Amino acid sequence: MTGGLPNAAVENLRNLQQLNISGNSLDGSLPASLFALPHLKILDLSSNDFDGHISIGSFSGPISLEVLDLGFNRLNGTLPVRAFKHIRSLNLGHNQFSGSLPVSLFALPQLNSLDLSYNYFEGHFPTSVSSEPVQLEVLHLESNMLSGALPTERGTQ
């Protein structure tokens, strides 16, 4: 498939739980209506040509997504971390995100897999990412421009 993904194409899919349209040539902005679908748990738009920001739009509450794969696109901007309260797996690898690593990502309560590889994140790796134990099981940060020490465990077991 080619072309954009207009809001009208997805806004009425109110019962949709999973959407996978990866590996196409879709381009343009991500429709904000995708993130407002109340039952959408898995969204895979990887390996397309989407660009611009992840736009949550006027939808102010946490999104229902548990798995979000936007890898291999041309997305940039800031990450709407506050909206990702239920996210378990987040793949934003191979995009054009830049700036400092959002420390708040590590405090997401359900997140166990995070891929931010092959972006342009820079600065120091946060040495104190959360006051609670971090649930991450998989973390990919390769091919960024991060520096600094890695966090160590608090206390001994």
Rank of each mutant, 00 (worst) to 15 (best):
L141Q: 10
F50A: 01
L43A: 02
H94V: 10
I54T: 01
G3C: 09
S143R: 12
N91V: 04
L68E: 03
S89R: 14
I54N: 04
L101H: 03
S100W: 01
Y118N: 12
R82H: 06
M145Y: 14
L40R: 05
D69W: 10
L108Y: 11
S60W: 01
N112H: 15
S55Y: 05
L111D: 04
S113K: 08
K85W: 03
S46F: 13
H94I: 04
L101R: 02
P80D: 02
I87S: 06
F125L: 15
N95F: 04
F84P: 00
G57T: 01
H39P: 00
H39K: 15
T127L: 07
P109R: 10
G99D: 05
I87A: 07
K41W: 05
I63R: 05
L13E: 02
P31Y: 09
M145A: 12
Q17M: 15
N112T: 11
T152M: 08
D44L: 07
L30G: 01
R74W: 06
L108V: 09
G3T: 09
V134C: 14
E137L: 10
M1W: 08
I63D: 05
Q18G: 15
H124G: 11
S64T: 12
K41T: 09
L5V: 11
K85V: 02
P133Q: 03
L111V: 06
S117L: 06
L108H: 04
F59M: 09
S29G: 03
S33K: 05
L19I: 13
D69C: 02
Y120I: 00
P126A: 11
E132H: 12
Q18T: 15
N76L: 10
L68H: 10
E66R: 15
E66W: 08
P109Y: 12
L68D: 03
Q110F: 14
D51N: 14
D27A: 13
A107N: 03
T127Y: 13
D69P: 01
Q135A: 13
S104H: 08
N20P: 00
F72S: 14
L114K: 05
A107C: 07
G93F: 09
T152D: 11
L75H: 04
N119D: 04
E132F: 12
F59E: 06
G123K: 04
M145P: 00
V138W: 13
H39W: 04
T152Q: 14
S33Q: 09
L68Y: 10
L114T: 01
G61F: 05
L19R: 14
M145I: 05
L70I: 06
V134L: 07
M1R: 07
F97H: 01
V134Q: 05
H53F: 13
A32I: 00
D44C: 03
L111F: 09
S47E: 14
F121M: 01
I42W: 13
L5W: 10
F97W: 02
I87K: 06
R74P: 00
G28L: 10
S113R: 12
L43K: 04
N24L: 11
H86L: 07
E11I: 10
V103H: 01
D115C: 03
S89I: 09
G4S: 15
L114N: 04
S22T: 06
D69R: 08
S147K: 11
A8V: 14
G155P: 02
G3S: 10
F35V: 08
